[in-house]
Write a protein that binds this DNA or RNA. Structure first.
Lengths: 264, 264
DNA sequence: ACCTGAACACCGTTCAAGT
DNA sequence: ACCTGAACACCGTTCAAGT
C-alpha cells in the first residue's frame, strides 16, 4: 500500500481541518456565517492557501455534504442487508434515516444550501457526480428491497406503477418532513408533537396503501424499529472525536455485519 | 373609502416595481443574482431609497413569498369548497397545488432560501407572522376536510392518530416532491418520468393506507382531478400583465365561486 | 420630509511577489 | 513548489449632506 509522504499527510490533515472548522461555522452561524476569511483566520492560514484545497466556497459545502452522504449510504446498505421480510427491511431503512439525522443534524441544512441553483452551479462536476452516485445508490438500495418484495409475493404493484415511483413516495415524504423539521418552523403549534413518529406512521400508511404485506395493521413494525434501533445503538461505542476528519468515528454503526435473526 | 394621495400611490407603485424586478432577478440569476445594488440600478433609484421600503434584502424575498402564499391560500380555499365527497375535495387541493406551482414556478426557490436560518432570522416579525398565518390556514383547510370525512364516516382514524398527522403526511410528501423537483436534480435518470403524476398517485396511496373511502381502487380520482383542472382552466381568462403588482391578475381562478356539482 | 450617494465593513477570488 | 497577503470587484447597510 502507498505510504503518504509527510507533505501529503500535511495536505490531507489541513483539508480535514478546513472541513471541520467550516462545519462548525455552518452549524453555529448558518450559511452566511461561513466565510473563507474566517476559516483562514481561525486556522491561521492565508486566504490563498484555502483555494489550493477548494476552488470556491461552495465546494467546501459540497464536500461536507458528500462526507455525510457517504455515511448515509453505508447506513442504508446495512439496513438493506437486515435479515427479515422486505417490509421489515424498509423499516430498517427508516431507522437508518433516523440514525443519520442524529449523526448529522446539520446535513439537511447543507442540502438546502446546495439545492439553491446559484450555489449548485459553482460546484465541480467531480463532486456533483459523487453526490449523485450516493443518492442513486441510496435509491437503488430501497428499490432493490421493493423488487425483492415483488419477487416474494409480498407486494404487487398496480399497472403502470414502478418500484421507483414507490421509492419516490418514501423519499419525498422523508425529505419533505426532514426539511420542514430542520427549518425550525415550529410544528408543535400546527399540532405535530412527535414529527419523527408521525413520519414513520405516514410511511407505514403509504406502504399499506400499496398493499405491501404484512400490513401495518397485521404486524407491529414499531417493535421491529425499536429492536433495530437498540441493536444498532449497542454498536455505537465511543462518541468519537471528530465527525468529518475520520469516517472511522462511526464505523461501528456503518458496518454491514449480520445482525440477529428477525421474527417472521 | 380612503383615497390615496399622489404620494402614497407613488410609494405603493415603487414598492411593487421593486418586487417585480427582484422577482425577475431571482428567477433569472438565483439567490446570488439578487442584489440591492442592481435593483436600484435597474429602477434608477438610489440604494438608500430601497431601504425605505424594505429594511433588508431578506425582507424583499419574504414579501415575494407572501405574495404567492396569499394566492395559494385562495386556491386552497376554493379547493376546500369544492362540492363533492371529502376525498374528492382533497383531490381538489392537489389540483390547487399543481395550479400554484404553474402560477408561481419560482415559489419553491423562495421558500428554499427563506428556510435558511441565516436568512430567516433577518426578516421582520410582521412578515414572518403573515407567512405563518398563510401556512396554518392552508393546513387548516386540509385538516377541515379530514374532519368532515371523519364526521361523514368516510374516514376513521386509528387510535392516537390526529387529522394533523395525516395532513402532515400529505404536506411533507408534496413539499418534498416539489423541492426535489425544483432543484433540478434530474429525476428522469432515477426512473421518475412524470413526477407530478407520481406525486398524485403516492398521495392517493397514502389516503388508501388510512382507509379513506372511497379508496382509489374503488373510484377513479384521476378523472375527478382532470374535471377540476379543466373547470378551473376555463376560468383562466387573460394571462395578465404582472404577477406581483396586482393580485387581481389571477383573481378569476382564485375566487371561491361554486363549481358544478360532482358525481358521488 | 424625502432622497441621495459617499462611506464603511465585509465578502469571494486572484495573482504578483516572496520563500 | 508552495505560500502569502495586497488588491480587486462586488456586496449590504448606514447616514450626513443635500433638496
Amino acid at each position: 500500500m502507498a505510504v503518504l509522504t509527510r507533505k501529503q499527510r500535511e495536505v490531507r490533515d489541513r483539508e480535514s481541518r478546513i472541513l471541520d472548522v467550516a462545519c462548525e461555522m455552518l452549524i453555529e452561524h448558518g450559511y452566511h456565517g461561513l466565510s473563507m476569511d474566517r476559516i483562514a483566520e481561525v486556522l491561521e492560514y492565508s486566504k490563498g492557501t484555502m483555494y489550493q484545497h477548494f476552488s470556491c466556497k461552495e465546494e467546501i459545502i459540497l464536500a461536507l455534504a458528500n462526507a455525510s452522504l457517504t455515511d448515509r449510504l453505508a447506513l442504508f446498505r446495512r439496513a438493506a442487508a437486515f435479515p427479515g421480510r422486505p417490509r421489515e427491511r424498509i423499516v430498517a431503512v427508516g431507522v437508518a434515516s433516523e440514525f443519520f439525522v442524529r449523526l448529522y443534524p446539520h446535513h439537511f441544512r447543507l442540502e438546502q444550501v446546495l439545492r439553491l441553483s446559484s450555489v449548485w452551479e459553482k460546484t465541480s462536476p467531480e463532486r456533483r457526480q459523487f453526490m449523485h452516485h450516493c443518492e442513486s445508490q441510496c435509491v437503488g438500495c430501497v428499490s432493490g428491497i421493493v423488487r425483492d418484495a415483488m419477487a416474494s409475493g409480498d407486494l404487487t404493484l398496480p399497472d403502470g406503477a414502478t418500484p421507483e415511483q414507490l421509492v419516490f413516495g418514501l423519499w419525498s415524504m422523508s425529505f419533505g418532513a426532514q426539511t420542514i423539521l430542520a427549518s425550525s418552523t415550529s410544528l408543535v403549534d400546527i399540532g405535530i408533537g412527535e414529527p419523527h413518529r408521525a413520519l414513520a406512521l405516514n410511511q407505514a400508511r403509504l406502504l399499506d396503501g400499496y398493499h405491501w404485506r404484512p400490513l401495518s395493521t397485521e404486524f407491529d413494525y414499531e417493535v421491529t424499529a425499536e429492536r433495530i434501533a437498540t441493536e444498532w445503538s449497542a454498536d455505537e461505542t465511543k462518541p468519537a472525536d471528530s465527525q468529518i476528519t475520520s469516517g472511522d468515528s462511526t464505523k461501528t454503526i456503518l458496518s454491514t455485519k449480520p445482525t440477529s435473526a428477525s421474527a417472521t
